[in-house]
């Protein structure tokens, strides 16, 4: 029930952000739309701990700048390698431990890995994530486990 209310209010916020009009007719249509969306989502059964990972949101704000910095760093490295005539890449497949407690936490970790150029998550397992790394350096970088630790901090809020 609480989750339904949260989804309802979030959809109203998104409606206002999209619409930008505040006349009563459109606002009441917004209420109607939010109610429809909540009803359909409830019937689909997608409003649960996986569909609403609210605990992750405060941590994400602190995590995003660090991730952005990592992304830029990795990106410059991969871009440099692409422009080399000799194409200095050594693709490897590694497994990194994923100690996140929840499924959304592990999903955030997997998506962070994919977002960082040079590493792609191939499979999310129970305690590990299989990763395809473009170079041994990016593989070693991920093995150091800093990203995983930071995503774990996300979960504790």
């Amino acid at each position: 029930m609480l989750r339904l209310l949260i989804l309802f209010s979030l959809t109203i916020v998104l409606w206002i952000a999209l619409s930008g009009h505040f006349d009563p007719f459109l606002l009441s249509l917004g209420l109607l739309s939010a109610a429809t969306v909540t009803l359909v989502s409830h019937r689909m059964g997608i409003i649960d701990a996986e569909g609403q990972p609210l605990g992750l949101i405060p941590g994400l704000l602190r995590y995003a700048p660090w991730l952005a910095k990592e992304m830029v760093r990795a990106c410059i490295d991969v871009a440099w390698r692409i422009t080399r005539p000799s194409l200095p890449i050594q693709p490897t497949i590694i497994r990194v431990p994923a100690n996140q407690q929840t499924v959304p936490g592990r999903v955030s970790f997997a998506n962070s890995i994919t977002l960082t150029p040079g590493t792609i998550s191939l499979d999310v397992l129970e305690k590990e994530i299989e990763v395809h790394a473009l170079t041994t350096e990016s593989a070693a970088d991920l093995k150091s486990g800093e990203m995983g630790k930071r995503v774990e901090h996300l979960e504790s809020g």
């Binding site: 994919t114 960082t116 150029p117 040079g118």
Partner: peptide
């Protein structure tokens, strides 16, 4: 797979 890394540069940064 290596192409995915290259496409990742376009799609993210």
């Amino acid at each position: 797979f290596t192409r995915m890394h290259a496409a990742g540069i376009t799609d993210t940064i």
